[in-house]
Design a protein around this nucleic acid. Structure first.
Length: 747
RNA sequence: GAGCCCGUAGCUCAGUUGGUUAGAGCGCUUCAUUGACAUUGAAGAGGUCAGAGGUUCGAGUCCUCUCGGGCUCACCA
């Protein structure tokens, strides 16, 4: 007989093992085939692709949220007899992982510059391998009914092959191009980022008013002045009409130089002095201005390098870090009498790296881009046609906005942890490429390929290769195979999102034979709203491009989990809820229920200890109600079944609850479904009906039937306790179906 | 500057085509308790659904405006 209290810890791991032993999560298992054979919906396919968490990161509460929501959807569909699969996986998480690994290297007194790229890749691979069980084990602990026999990792060979095929197809279709543009470069992380990966931080900074010949102009970045190639004023600015088109002489820190004055509407005559210096290689607006005025302006000059130091163009300031150089330059300008004034309380937004928080430098770098216009239009069209539905407070509108305004996608990343671009440079055609490699003496060598080849063999360069920076006009070949010994492969890797945007179809195409036809398009993509444009939007673009079909029919976006006061959780605030701790303390069921009950698509949710206690109590309530019903069933075994006065009302209500909960689940009202079940089970079934049954107003057997229905309806939400009770019923021979997880949904 | 979301009980939040006395959890008050459960039960206090106007037989729900909070994007060098 059951204990008087339900102790989640005593049951959960055994229950999960029981499910695995019966292969309950695999659509091809006997038990699920039998379930489907009896179901009207047996022909209907239902698939969910799990958003792959970072392979070597412990889970946070957001993961618990997605596991719970998706598990509810999947368990419901499975019990409804649909051909159901939930495909799990993990992500190599390019920059995230390399960033963490580099911190580890730093602790050991090393840095990425000490290794050639193949060695570094291998080291990260091993590191991830050591830790990759973490995420998977924790997902299991959360009760995920995912089919582990279909598990995939983003760097699995077959996955990579398909990703590269997609790239090749895009290249063949003319969607890929290489160009030299300003990129968002993080000197600390050593890589460029797409616009989406740049954060903006409000800051108070200084606005320096500097003398430029007859003008005074305001700038926040005096250290880039050595890259000035012109000055700009507004075409209608009366003050400066006489100078437009003229060259003026400017006194500088490295001697005098000349700048031409151009007229451009981008200049706001009201701001500062109405004069702007044009520094095309270090400011996005200036770069655009330079492109408009190429005929009037000289070639741009790069003053800041990829390590965040000034280049030789800065004369005596060369090799200084940007911040140091700025201080020094301001001081020197002041001494020379070129600094007119400083506005110290200037407020603006600084672009910072979303990963490390350091300032982003706009820098010129040839990169590979994908033309997005056709891809985004195709997505908009599907949305117009209602082929894809978005659940989540207003986020559909945000998706639309992005689709209409997305700029071409920079897919090159200067890191090693990722899928290397299948781009090849023929050596004899690219002798001007800039190369960095580690020679056999473990020395880091940089230089022009032609010069390096005089001292080193091509094999030595290839083996120690760190970085190739081919010229802007470089000729290249796209090939998934090595085209020959006279080629060097591009050292850039794909943006992580380039591979994860293909996740729904690559996982299905490279799984059991027939999976793609059987499960694509998938039913629902469920994820947090904060990666809507990084991931969901791009999955739509890539899925439609590659397969002609949107990769999913529904998008369910959940909100962020916040603390009891509604504050965002963060390590520095110390208010982080660790799902594993909650699971240990209150049980996984309590964790799951607390996260999703009364949650609403697209909106954030606060949780506190009180919430977990309340849902833990639900498990206990269910356990004890079951105990009572079993006890009374045992006692009344000999008595004939008699009809009682409230039987009919009981059955009707039970039916109504089943209908309502099913409807809620099918219309993505998951928080409402949970709330309904909680209240109806506790306050109606327990508080009311059990009491009535004690008075003989409801038939005991009917109560048992009611219990079975509640166990089934509650199972997707709190799978462990419901299954634990079910197994007691199996032991007592009271039910036919051996596993609740693969039992039929009530009608 | 633009867009999006939110404002419902002391706190955290549900309330999807507008429809009976507006709900839950936690907290609070009083009482109960040997046929399951104190991780319990019963009863109760507590809301002019941010404010104003409008549409309607009827508005927490739809429209307009105002105020307050949050998020995102874009920005003046």
């Amino acid at each position: 007989m059951l204990d008087t209290q339900y102790q989640a810890k005593d049951h959960e791991s055994q229950i999960y093992k029981l499910w695995l032993d019966h292969d309950c999560f695999n659509p091809d298992s006997k038990i699920n085939q039998n379930l489907r054979a009896k179901s009207k919906k047996g022909q209907e396919s239902y698939s969910v692709i799990m958003p792959p968490p970072n392979a070597n990161d412990p889970l946070h509460v957001g993961h618990a949220m997605f596991v719970t929501l998706e598990d509810i959807m999947v368990r419901t569909a499975r019990m409804q007899g649909k051909d159901t699969v939930w495909i799990p996986g993990t992500d190599h998480a390019g920059i995230e992982t390399q960033f963490v690994f580099e911190k580890k290297l730093k602790k050991e007194g090393q840095s990425r510059f000490n290794f050639d790229r193949e060695t570094l890749f291998k080291m990260i691979w091993d590191y991830v391998g050591e830790n990759s069980a973490i995420a998977v084990d924790q997902i299991k602990k959360l009760g995920a009914s995912a089919d582990w026999s279909r598990y995939k990792f983003t760097l699995d060979q077959d996955i990579v092959k398909t990703v590269l095929e997609t790239f090749t197809k895009m290249n063949d279709d003319g969607l890929v191009y290489r160009t030299n543009r300003l990129v968002n470069f993080c000197p600390k992380c050593g890589t460029a980022f797409s616009n989406l990966e740049v954060d903006h931080k409000e800051q108070d900074t200084s606005l320096y008013y500097i003398k430029y010949g007859p003008f005074v102009l305001a700038t926040t970045r005096p250290e880039t002045k050595f890259g000035d190639t012109g000055l700009a004023v507004h075409p209608d600015d009366k003050r400066y009409q006489q100078y437009i088109g003229q060259e003026i002489e400017v006194e500088g820190l490295n001697g005098n130089f000349n700048l031409r004055v151009i007229a451009d509407e981008m200049v706001d005559p009201e701001f500062g002095t109405g004069v702007v210096k044009i520094t095309p290689y270090h400011d996005f607006n200036d770069f655009a201005a330079w492109q408009r005025h190429k005929a009037e302006l000289p070639e741009p000059i790069q003053v800041v390098d990829f390590e965040g130091r000034l280049t030789a163009a800065a004369g005596k300031y060369a090799r200084l870090k940007v911040a140091v150089a700025r201080e020094q330059i301001v001081k020197d300008l002041e001494e020379k009498g070129l600094l007119v004034k400083v506005d110290k309380n200037y407020h603006n937004n600084l672009s910072v790296c979303y990963r490390c928080g350091n300032p982003i430098e706009p820098l010129p770098l040839p990169q590979f881009y994908i033309k997005v216009k056709g891809l985004t239009d195709a997505v908009s069209q599907r949305l117009d046609q209602g082929e894809i539905k978005v659940y989540g407070a207003g986020h559909d509108k945000i998706l639309r906005h992005w689709l209409d305004n997305l700029e071409d996608w920079n897919i090159s990343r200067q890191i090693v942890w990722g899928i290397r671009l299948p781009i090849w440079y023929k050596i004899e055609e690219n002798l001007d490429a800039q190369i960095t490699f580690i020679d056999t003496e473990k020395q880091r060598v940089s230089g022009k390929l032609s010069e390096l080849l005089e001292k080193y063999s091509i094999d030595e360069i290839r083996n120690g290769l760190q970085n190739i920076n081919a010229s802007i006009e470089a000729k290249y070949l796209v090939s998934q195979e090595n085209p020959g010994d006279n080629y060097l492969q591009e050292t850039d890797t794909f943006d992580t999102w380039f591979s994860s945007s293909q996740w729904p179809f690559v996982t299905l195409m490279n799984n059991k034979p027939g999976d793609f036809e059987r499960f694509y398009p998938t039913a629902t993509m469920e994820t947090a709203y904060d990666i809507l444009m990084f991931w969901v939007m791009r999955m739509l673009m890539m899925g439609i491009y590659k397969t002609g079909k949107a990769p999913f029919k529904n998008i369910y976006l959940h909100g962020l989990i916040r603390d009891a006061k509604g504050q965002k959780m963060s390590k520095s605030k110390g208010n982080v809820v660790n799902p594993m701790e909650i699971s240990e303390k209150y049980g996984t069921d309590a964790l799951r229920m607390a996260l999703i009950i009364r949650s609403s698509a697209g909106l954030d949710k606060s949780v506190s200890d009180g919430d977990f206690k309340a849902t833990r109590n639900l498990s206990n309530k269910l356990w004890n109600a079951s105990r009572f019903i079993l006890l009374s069933k045992e006692e009344n075994k000999e008595k004939p079944i008699a009809n009682c006065s409230n039987d009919q009302a009981f059955e009707e209500k039970l039916q109504a609850i089943t209908k309502e909960v099913t409807k809620n689940l099918e219309s993505f009202q998951i928080g409402v479904a949970a709330d309904t079940l909680y209240n109806e089970f506790w306050h109606w079934f327990c508080d009311q009906c059990i009491e009535e049954s004690k008075k003989g107003l409801i038939n005991q057997d009917l109560m048992f039937k009611g219990l079975l229905i509640f166990l089934k309806l509650l199972h997707p939400f709190i799978p462990f306790v419901t299954e634990a009770i079910w197994q007691e019923l199996v032991k007592e021979n009271l039910v036919e179906e051996k596993i609740l997880a693969s039992s039929a949904w009530p009608e």
